[in-house]
Each structure stands twice: as C-alpha cells, then as structure tokens.
C-alpha cells in the first residue's frame, strides 16, 4: 500500500505526552528551523527532531516506506536547487567562491548544454537545505505513528480550532487508510489489464497523463464516497451546534514544560533571526579549498 501507517500503543515518553503539547512543539520546531541557514543551528534542530523520533521508539521497518519516499523528494529537490543554483543566491548568500567548474555538460533527452559551477556557498547551502528538510521530516513523521487516531479531533479542537475544522482533521486521518486501500485495488485492477506503471515514458506531462488509469478511478471513488460520508454526518446531526468532544485531554506537568520549551525555542529563534544571527555559515576549510 502506498500510504500506510499504523498507530501502535507504546509505553514511551513521547506517547505519554498530551498530543496538543506535541503539536505545539512540532510547530515551534518547524517555524524556528526555517528561520536559519546556519548548518550548526540546523544540526541542533535535527538532533532534537531525531531525539524525538528515537524516544518514540519507532522502528526503521515500520517507517521505512515514508522515509524512502520523502528522502527521495528531499534529495531530488536539493540536487535540483544545486544544479540550477537557485534558492540561496541573493537570499542566503550574496557572493560565491568557486571550488570547481564542470562542463560543458549536456542534458540527456533535451540536449541542453551548460557549465556547472560548484561553489563553497552553493554546496553548504545544499547541505543545510537537506538537513533542514530532514529535521522537519523527523519531527512530522513521528506524529501519525504515535498519536492515537481517535484523538485528532479533540487535539485540534483543544488547540482552539473550530469544531468543523477540528473534525475535518479527524476525518482526514480516518480516511487516509481507505484512500490507500482504494489506490491499491485500482493499481491491481489496472496491472491485471497489462498496465505497467514502472514503464511510463515520455515527458512529464505525458507521464502524468499516463497516470490517468490510476488517478481517475481513485479520485472518482473518493468523490462518490464523500457523498455517503456527508449523508452519514447529516444523519447524525453534525454541525447543528456546539458539540461535545468525548475525549478529554488534560495537560500534565511534562506537557506544560514542553509547551514552555516550544515557546522559548520559537522566541529565541525569532529574536536571533531578527538580530541577523544564524545566516548561512560556510566553514573556513571549505573556503580554503576555493583559494
């Protein structure tokens, strides 16, 4: 199944925390880490994120698939940024020190030729970008495996979101496995008709078009199914007024400490960012190679 995770109850520090405190902490880390390009600071955030991941006692086996998909996307984006030279120039750094010049190189298929300048700033920026995205991933990937799926609605309501929005989040988590299963059935049904997704060829537009046998049935099924979902909600009085949330969440001391830490991290990060700290840091030894 393409999209699959399974929540398991584990007696861990992470799972004993109130999910609201964990969401606040996650958001704080996300909003803080994106304020920095300094690899040393980012590695600090990455350490916190990985610490949370390991404290949650998640195994590689259960999280392997999302890690592989997201890592592929991260590496792809980083290489793309590195090759095009866009992203950091003019924002994270203003001058570049050449380490090597490759080329002229020729792009397969389109045949464009170009010269690739490998600079100290571009290289460190790529590494920082990757570390930043992995920190965000490690922080976020832990959530679906360790928050009880029955608590999402109460969690988001507890964070101050309106009933309807909070329940929408709950419903989204409820139907992700259903969507994954529908996708899996469609993939099997089309493969049984000789469709080979791994043999798609042509340009990006053409490849997307060739995904229609998968995307159309899954989308149509989701839309048709949504009608039943709406009926089921209407028939049980959803949205007629303020609702009671059966699950009652209660902050404990550890949760309050975590929220306080989250607030401090965010405040300090923002202050540092305003003061101009934490910009791209290029280690001296890398610059030395450029000379």
């Amino acid at each position: 199944m393409l999209i699959a995770w399974k929540y398991r109850e584990r007696n861990t520090v992470i799972q004993r925390l109130d999910p609201r405190a964990r969401i606040i902490f996650m958001l704080s880390i996300l909003v803080s880490v994106i304020q920095f390009w300094d690899l040393r600071v980012i590695l600090g955030f990455l350490a916190v994120a990985l610490g949370q991941y390991f404290l949650a006692r998640l195994t590689w086996r259960e999280t392997r698939r999302p890690w592989m998909v997201i890592s592929f996307i991260i590496v792809f984006l980083t290489i793309l940024t590195f090759l095009t030279g866009r992203g950091g120039v003019g924002t994270a750094y203003h001058e570049e020190h050449l380490l090597a010049r490759l080329g002229p190189l020729s792009l397969p298929i389109v045949g464009w030729s170009f010269t690739l300048d490998i600079t100290a700033e571009k290289t460190v920026f790529a590494i920082s970008q990757m570390a930043r995205m992995f920190a965000i991933t490690a922080m976020a990937i832990t959530i679906p495996y360790t928050i009880d799926p029955g608590l999402y609605g109460a969690t988001f309501r507890g964070l101050g979101l309106p009933d309807k929005f909070a329940y929408a989040m709950d419903l989204a988590f409820r139907y992700v496995p259903t969507l994954g299963r529908d996708f899996s059935i469609t993939l099997d049904a089309q493969r049984a008709r000789g469709y080979e997704v791994e043999k798609l060829s042509g340009g990006i537009i053409s490849q997307i078009r060739k995904l229609a046998p998968l995307l159309v049935p899954v989308t149509i099924n989701a839309i048709v199914g949504a009608e039943d979902v709406i009926d089921a909600m209407d028939l049980r009085c959803f949205g007629i007024g303020p609702r009671t949330w059966m699950q009652k969440l209660q902050y404990k001391r550890a949760d309050k400490a975590l929220i306080l830490t989250a607030v401090l991290i965010f405040a300090l990060s923002t202050a540092a960012s305003i003061m101009g700290l934490g910009r791209l840091w290029v280690p001296g030894f890398v610059l030395a190679w450029a000379k």
Binding site: G225, R236, F238, I240, T244, Q247, K248
Partner: peptide
Amino acid sequence: LQDPERQILGSRVVNEVAFGLENLGLPR
C-alpha cells in the same frame, strides 16, 4: 447506510458510536 465503510466516521469504535451524541452536545 449500505456501505458501512463510508458510514463509519470515527477512527476508533468508541468515537464512531459517540459521534451523533457528541453532535447533539450531550454531557460527556
């Protein structure tokens, strides 16, 4: 409804059974 898969809105059984009562705003 005909397809229980689409009618069941709660991630857990207890949430599903409570759904209508929560919407009516009954005491916990």
